[in-house]
Structures are given as structure tokens and as C-alpha cells.
Nucleic acid binder design. Structure first.
Length: 791
DNA sequence: AGGGTTTTTT
């Protein structure tokens, strides 16, 4: 069967020849991702002697897609992976022979900071642009500038520099953010639409919108399974809990294994039918219509046509003809959960055909909307909602909220039913809700996330005035200035002219968020860098595993074990976990016993290697290697590590409310952190140490830094707490500190000889709210008629 | 004793 995109080859190639930018719209199944690179290749692009000798690049938002697409195209062109190659974070197959290169968009962004002209490439194909991921959006913005640069340079010396072409591919027609954005492309690029090889999907809305979409999904799936012909069911819910719950309900109602007797009865009926048909077929003159070209696919197949009162009617097709029979047991449901934190093996089960005589039923989150395509789905049940991470840019408070998806998302979900044949989508909400409460499109990621990493990356590419950057959807001014402020605190950019500093340039070379990059850059002291690397690697990864309620006690025991001797930091606890995991031989069993996601632990391992190699390559004085049997840090090192952590989170300090209200001193004595309120730098709200923190069961510290701030159902909690000493703040957090007048008590001490120096106690105040901190001793010297604090 | 998380990536 020919892919729809192949019919458009002429149109596409002509458009790419005549325009620097082309937009191609085609839903999943149109074949654009695999075919467009091949069109270019076969037209001679990327050939060293051609007019477009540079590589053909295709970017993908996800690693798996980059790898599998490269394999697929290599197979179709019958070329080795040294020619059709891929590059993702930890895996490269490129060679000097490479002509087509699939990669994640993050990889190309990183390459851009080394070579702003993308000289290696002749075409950049940006795939899945409709998803509006952060990296994809930034890439489109940067590439639009590269285009202009390359065009100018090529006009000066065509022999040396060839112009660049860009192809933006999208599964939906939401492309106006790219095409009608004159800061991005002065002349609107042509849009080519490609039909998808997609079967029709009938949409069925609920009359009423139920409160409980899990219960409603259960009813709907039961109905589908009891009454409708065979075909897999895919259910979209919002989170793990809902999924596990519905799994349980459905497995109870439709046990996964059919009665053995029923299976045997079925086999007997089929064999008898086949024999009878064979006899009939042997009668001469009864030829079957052989020019029905599809019939060769239809043989030896069975179709469930109806069910009634527990009786199932099947049509059985074999080599000799068709036969209808009924059997009296409900086909079991093969119920599988699917969400991203599920171990890989469990995820792969959805790709295997369900056991014979059962119906596949996958209950999934958003993963099944974009990242994973499940074969054999004919029915989609869509609750219409999605869980989203929200981020309050002013306060830094994150939360998870369940809300309606967009019309575009609902369309994507429905489309999953039409991949292998005509399908049905059951929406568990009314059409009125769909019309009135659903946004047309989901909010692009850039409008929902902190972007200090993006801003630092731009600065390192020489883009100082980020406001003028051609974002497909510009982030809010406030988001940008917040990012610049944080980069200022971290010392990555100059606070006046907002230009990148040497430290910032070093940070930009590290593939982690700027806070973590800062920790790495300052962490090379007292033999601590390997610890800092392990900490940063662990913080960059979602490490904890979802736990069952029953395991609660054991979980807390393991947490205490991991905290080791120092119980004042959740982040240092992470360090211990990483060490213990490696020490135990990095096994899956260790992860299982210790409530860790083995996928995450493997990622941490690879990240430690990458960061270690990078640090050694970037800094002359760094002598570091990965030591799996890393010894725990000493007391002195622990103190230093906490200071490093403080520096990375200097804008995320919290102080106990009672201490602030008491002028920075004393405060109440508490046995544990339960109900003990902390004040936040950027919010009037109070926050609490999470009961899951290692610090919860101890006397709560006066001051702490936190990795994240989460708004739960009842209150706002810190995640990843480290107790700090307020004495560090005037040093590490200079820009947030000021000092009051010297105190009369304890009495100032003057230097013996000259009397132009004195040692005094002052009350420092910290942060935008000027919190009073416990008094510290400082040295002052006389400057003219005034006393000033010595540096 | 104690709360609750979707999804990606350099």
C-alpha cells in the first residue's frame, strides 16, 4: 500500500526547491516523517557533489522516535546506520558517511551553540511541531534566524556557503503561529496538506457529563465489550490512581483467562466448520471470486459480530469460505495499564497481541496520545481531561491540576481508533461541554514552564535581548524577567546589561538546568565534585517510585537507612541512594527493595558519566572520574555540599515563621515539623515540610532551601529540603542581604593598636521581605567618618 | 505518626 505522502512528492520537492521554509501538515499515518527525508535523499540532497551537500537533519521531540525512525528509513533505503544515523543524548551512530540524521531537538539546539550557522546541514526538518514542546519552539525560532544568516553569507560567496532549507512538519493544521508570525518568517511559508491513511472514526458524545469519569468509563467499557464486535479498547484517564482503580474493576468483572472448556469448544467448532467448508469447496464449479484483491488478507480470520445474553456470535473465515457460529462465554478482557513511570517491560506489553480469544483493553494517560501508538485499537473511551503541571511564575509554586483537554487533543485521542480500520470514539462528556469549555489548542509548553535554561542558552548564542527573539508564541514578559533575575542571582549574567558572564558561559555548556550547572561549576573543591555530579544527576531525574500504601512503614525505614548519619537534607539522602545503588551492583532488585525506579537509576548512571566527562573536558583544573564505589562524604564535605546546594537554590530559601516573628532569634521548640509554618521569599503563603521528607521527624531547622514547592490538596509543601545555617546566607546570598546597625550587645571589640577596625554583631536581613536573621559577627573598618563592613 | 505526581529533553 502506498503512503498518502508519496502522491505529493512532486509538490513537496518543488516547494522545498522554491522556498526556504515549507510547512507540511499531515496526520499520523501520512508517512511524512519517513518519506520526506527519502524524497530529499533521492533527489540528490546531502550528496557531496550536489548543490546541497550538507546533511539532511530530522528532529524529533523524543529519543525513542529519533532512534526508531532512523532504523526505519535506513531499512527502507537499504542503507546502514552509518549513513542513515541517529543522535540522542547517550547514543550516536553518525559517521563521516552520514547523509540523513535523525536526532532529538535538544541535540540540535546543543549543536547550535557550537555552530550557529549549522554549516553541516543543508535541510532541517522539524517534526511534530504541533506538539509545541519547549525545545521545538525554540529550535524553530533559532533556525528562522540561521536561515537569514545563511542566505546573506551565501549571497556573498555561494561557492563556500549554501543556503539552508527548513521544513516544519505538523500533525494538525494549527500552524498560524509559524506561518503568520512575521517576526519569525517575513514571508509566510507555503503550507502543504497531506491526507492521512486514516480510517473514519465516529464520535459519540455523552448526553450528560458525569461527575465520576472513572465509573462512567467502567460502564462504557462494559457496554462496548458486551455488545460490540472485536477490536481493542483504549481508555484515556488522568493519572496512575485512576488507571489502577479501573484496571481492578475491569479485571474483576472480566477475568483475563477464558474457561478452558470454552476455548476447546471453540476450537472444535472451528475445525468442524473448516472441514465442512473444505468438502463444499471440493464440489466443482463453485469457484470463489479470485479477483477480490483484498481477500488474501481476509483468510483465517475471525470476527465478532454480535453478543446477546452472554452468547457471542463470530464469523469465522478460512481458506475455504466463511462460517458463522455462536459460543456462550464472554471473551475475556486483557486489561493493561499504561503510563510513563511504568517499567519498560510493562509498557511493552501493550504492543504484544492479546492472548487468543481475548480483547485488548489499555487504560492510559496522555502517553498514549503522543508518545506511544498502540496497534489494533478500534474503540477509544475519552474522559476528556488531563492532569497538567501548573507553575505560578511569581511564587514558584507548582501544582498538578486535572482539567479539560483541548479540542486538538481530543481529536488526537479519537484518531487513535482509526489506525487499523474504521473506529469509534466515546467521549464521556457532552457536546455542549466540548463546544464551550474546551480550548481550541493546548497551551504551548513555553507558556507553562520556567525558562531560565532557555534564556541562558540564548545568551550563550549571543542573543542578549531575549524579548526580541522570534518565539512562535512569546512567553510573558514577567516569565522572561524572572528567568533573567535568577540567572543574575546565579552569577550567570551581568545584572546591569544582562550579558552572559564567563561563569554563565561555562554553565551554558552543561546540559542541566542553570541551578544545577551553578552547583557543578562551584563544586570542584575539597574533592567534592564527584558528589556534586551525583547529586545533580539524581536531581535531574524523577527517582522515587510510586508506593503502595501497605509498604508505608517499610518505605520510611528505607528512607532513614538512606539518609545515613546526616539527616538534615533530602538531597544528601539522594546522594546516599545513588552510592548504595552502585555499591549493590546497580541491580533491579536493589531498586525494587528500595522503592526506586530502575529506569531512573539507569538514567542517573549515564548522566553521571556524561557530566563527569564534560566537566573534565571543560575545565582545565578538573580531575574527576566516575567511581562507582564512591565513599560517603566526610563531615567537612557534607558541610561544603550543603553550601553548594544553598548556592544553587539561593532564591528558594525559607525561614521558620516563629523565628522571623521573634526578630530572627530564639523561636519555639518543636519536636517535629508537623504544622510548623515557614515563610517564603516570593509569596505571602506559608509552606510546610512534607511528611515524606527526612526532616519531618526532627526538630525543624530555622532555615532551609528547597528544590521544589508543591501545592497539594491541603497545603503547600517543600520537596527536596536541605537544612542550612543562616550564617552562610550573607556570604552565599550577598545580593539578598543587608545589615542593620551594629548591636550594643554583645559589646563591639576594637582592634588593639589602631582603633580603625572593630568586630561587632549585626542583624542581617535577608530576601525581598527583609527577614531578620540571627545576629552574626562582622568586621568593620573606618572609612572617613563612617564605619563600613569589611568584605 | 505522616501526603499523594503527566510528560519530555540537552
Amino acid at each position: 500500500m502506498k503512503l498518502p505522502v508519496c502522491g505529493e512528492e512532486q509538490v513537496i520537492m518543488e516547494a522545498i526547491r522554491n522556498n526556504t521554509v515549507v510547512v507540511i501538515c499531515g496526520e499520523t499515518g501520512s508517512g511524512k516523517t519517513t518519506q520526506v527525508p527519502q524524497f530529499l535523499y533521492e533527489a540528490g540532497w546531502s550528496h557531496p557533489d550536489s548543490d546541497n551537500p550538507g546533511l539532511i537533519a530530522i528532529t524529533q521531540p523524543r529519543r525513542v522516535a529519533a532512534v526508531s525512525m532512523a532504523k526505519r528509513v535506513g531499512y527502507e533505503l537499504n542503507l546502514p546506520e552509518s549513513v542513515v544515523s541517529h543522535q540522542i543524548r547517550y547514543d550516536v551512530t553518525t559517521s563521516e558517511k552520514t547523509r540523513i540524521k535523525f536526532m532529538t531537538d535538544g541535540v540540535l539546539l546543543r549543536e547550535l551553540s557550537q555552530d550557529l550557522l549549522l554549516t553541516k546541514y543543508s535541510v532541517i526538518i522539524i517534526d511534530e511541531a504541533h506538539e509545541r514542546n519547549l525545545n521545538t519552539d525554540i529550535l524553530i525560532g533559532v533556525v528562522s534566524r540561521v536561515l537569514k544568516l545563511r542566505a546573506e553569507l551565501s549571497r556573498e560567496d555561494r561557492a563556500k556557503i549554501k543556503p539552508l532549507r527548513v521544513v516544519i512538519m505538523s500533525a494538525t493544521l494549527r500552524v498560524s503561529d509559524f506561518t503568520e508570525n512575521s517576526t519569525l518568517f517575513t514571508k509566510p511559508p507555503p503550507v502543504i496538506s497531506v491526507n492521512a491513511r486514516q480510517y473514519p472514526v465516529s464520535i459519540h458524545f455523552n448526553k450528560r457529563t458525569p461527575e465520576d469519569h472513572v465509573a462512567e468509563a467502567f460502564k462504557k467499557v462494559s457496554k462496548i465489550h458486551d455488545r460490540l464486535p472485536e477490536g481493542g479498547i483504549l481508555i484515556f484517564l488522568t493519572g496512575q490512581n485512576e488507571i489502577q482503580h479501573l484496571c481492578k474493576l475491569l479485571r474483576e468483572k472480566y477475568p483475563s483467562l477464558p474457561p478452558k472448556a470454552a476455548l476447546e469448544e471453540r476450537k472444535r467448532i472451528r475445525q468442524a466448520a473448516e472441514l465442512e467448508l473444505k468438502r463444499d469447496a471440493a464440489i466443482p464449479g463453485e469457484e470463489s471470486d479470485s479477483d477480490d484483491s483484498d481477500s488474501d488478507l481476509g483468510f483465517d480470520e475471525e470476527e465478532l459480530v454480535s453478543t446477546k445474553d452472554g452468547k457471542w456470535e463470530y464469523i469465522y473465515k478460512c481458506e475455504y469460505g466463511k462460517f458463522t457460529y455462536t459460543i456462550s462465554y464472554a471473551a475475556p478482557l486483557h486489561v493493561l495499564p499504561l503510563y510513563s513511570s511504568l517499567p519498560t517491560e510493562a509498557q511493552l506489553r501493550v504492543f504484544q497481541p492479546p492472548p487468543e480469544g481475548t480483547r485488548l483493553c489499555v487504560i492510559a494517560t496522555n502517553v498514549a496520545e503522543t508518545s506511544v501508538t498502540i496497534p489494533g485499537i478500534r474503540y477509544v473511551v475519552d474522559c476528556g481531561k488531563a492532569k497538567e503541571r501548573r507553575y505560578d511564575i511569581k511564587t514558584g509554586v507548582q501544582s498538578f491540576e486535572v482539567d479539560w483537554t483541548s479540542k486538538a487533543s481530543a481529536g488526537q485521542r479519537a484518531g487513535r481508533a482509526g489506525r487499523t480500520g474504521p473506529g469509534h470514539c466515546y467521549r464521556l462528556y457532552s457536546s455542549a461541554v466540548f463546544d464551550h469549555d474546551f480550548e481550541q489548542f493546548s497551551t504551548p509548553e513555553i507558556s507553562r514552564m520556567p525558562i531560565e535554561g532557555v534564556v541562558l542558552n540564548m545568551k550563550s548564542m549571543g542573543i542578549d535581548n531575549v524579548v526580541n527573539f522570534p518565539f512562535p508564541t512569546p512567553p510573558e514578559r514577567q516569565t522572561l524577567s524572572k528567568a533573567e533575575k535568577l540567572l543574575g542571582y546565579l552569577g550567570a549574567i551581568d545584572t546591569d546589561v544582562k550579558h552572559i558572564t564567563p561563569v554563565g558561559q561555562a554553565m551554558a555548556n552543561l546540559p542541566v538546568t542553570p541551578r544545577f550547572a551553578k552547583m557543578l561549576v562551584i563544586g570542584n573543591q575539597q574533592d567534592c565534585l564527584p558528589f556534586v555530579i551525583a547529586i545533580v544527576a539524581a536531581l535531574s531525574t524523577e527517582i522515587a517510585k510510586a508506593r503502595r500504601r501497605l509498604m508505608r512503614k517499610k518505605y520510611f525505614e528505607s528512607q532513614i537507612k538512606h539518609a545515613g548519619l546526616d539527616r538534615s537534607s533530602d538531597i544528601l539522602k539522594l546522594l546516599n541512594v545513588v552510592g548504595a545503588y552502585e555499591y549493590a551492583g546497580a541491580t533491579a532488585e536493589f531498586c525494587e527493595e528500595n522503592f526506586l525506579r530502575s529506569k531512573a537509576m539507569e538514567e542517573i548512571r549515564k548522566l553521571r558519566w556524561q557530566l563527569t566527562n564534560l566537566m573534565a573536558a571543560l575545565f582545565e583544573n578538573v580531575d574527576v572520574w566516575v567511581d562507582p564505589k564512591m565513599l560517603p562524604p566526610t563531615k567537612r564535605q557534607i558541610k561544603f555540599l550543603k553550601q553548594v546546594i544553598t548556592a544553587g537554590f539561593i532564591d528558594s530559601v525559607a525561614i521558620r515563621k516563629d523565628v522571623i516573628e521573634n526578630g530572627g532569634q530564639g523561636g519555639t521548640r518543636f519536636k517535629n515539623a508537623r504544622g510548623v509554618a515557614y515563610k517564603l521569599m516570593w509569596s505571602e503563603e506559608e509552606a510546610f515540610i512534607h511528611p515524606g521528607s527526612i526532616l519531618y521527624s526532627q526538630e525543624p531547622p530555622i532555615a532551609l532551601v528547597y528544590n521544589e514547592l508543591f501545592k497539594g490538596a491541603t497545603k503547600t509543601c517543600f520537596k527536596g529540603v536541605t537544612a542550612i545555617d543562616t550564617k552562610w546566607l550573607p556570604e552565599i546570598g550577598k545580593e539578598f542581604c543587608s545589615f542593620g546597625r551594629p548591636l550594643d550587645h554583645p559589646i563591639p571589640k576594637y582592634s588593639e593598636q589602631t582603633k580603625d577596625k572593630k568586630t561587632v554583631y549585626v542583624v542581617p536581613s535577608f530576601g525581598p521581605k527583609g527577614w531578620p536573621l540571627p545576629p552574626i559577627q562582622v568586621e568593620m573598618h573606618r572609612k572617613g567618618t563612617r564605619w563600613v563592613i569589611s568584605a
